[in-house]
Amino acid sequence: MGHRHQLTDSVIQVNHLSFKYTSQYVLEDITLHVRKGAFLGLVGPNGSGKSTLVKCLLGIQTPQQGDISLFGEPLKKFSGWDRIGYVSQKANSFNSGFPATVFEVVSMGLYGKIGLFRFLTKKHKQKVYEAIEKVEMSAYTNENIGNLSGGQQQRVFIARALVSDPDLLILDEPTVGVDVHSVQQFYTMLKQLNQEHGITLVLITHDIGAMTDYVTDVACLNKHLHFHGDTDTFTESENEMMSTLYGHDVHMLTHNHDHSACEVPTS
């Protein structure tokens, strides 16, 4: 769990972050470091604050305490938003009657980069086609997004996150509604992006069993950060890790997800 890296190697640095929506803290004293090139699996039960943590990272929510740096820059000064791709948990709960083609949706991923008063150039369009190709949706380029299946829509949103060539890709439960075969393909694709293209990845998932074959690091969250380390350390102690993190729901949860869970180190 390398804490002291060079600043330039740091993609995400969170220090003593606490956050509450109303009166109760949903995140407390989180300190987390994600180095360049990591593929982090972020797990935890429902309501444990995973999505909230990501929203803090992206500046959608502002934590009451603590500070965040992205690519070595404090969040307040950070401006390189086009370096970050994000697929939110609600990505496919958009208004499904919206008349937009796959091409149009994916090109949105470039809008931040293009800037005001400018339009898509040939080069941009080429990038869009490539991103669609990457998620194997080329056959649907000019189809309305509302006419696709849930899993296909999810792929389109991933393409949108990829199209700007991000250095960091944050995916909040991207495989919900994606079939088993496609999930494996999808994880393989992520691993490729991570290893061959050097993209740093943060993947939120409940699918702990499948995830451990692909990620390099695991973080377990339940209001507090209970564990953060490399995948081997995680799997070694995995079976003892259950109960504190998942509490009494652990049996139900593990039942649903083959084998899973995290532990609170007794330290």
Binding site: W81, F98, E104, Y111, G112, L116
Partner: peptide, 22 residues
């Protein structure tokens, strides 16, 4: 026409659009 991108993105997916700086 000038703000087509911004209007389109914000109408489709407000949260993402804000993150992208719209």
């Amino acid at each position: 026409i000038l703000f087509y991108k911004e209007l389109f993105f914000l109408s489709f997916d407000e949260e993402q659009a804000i993150i992208s700086g719209m």
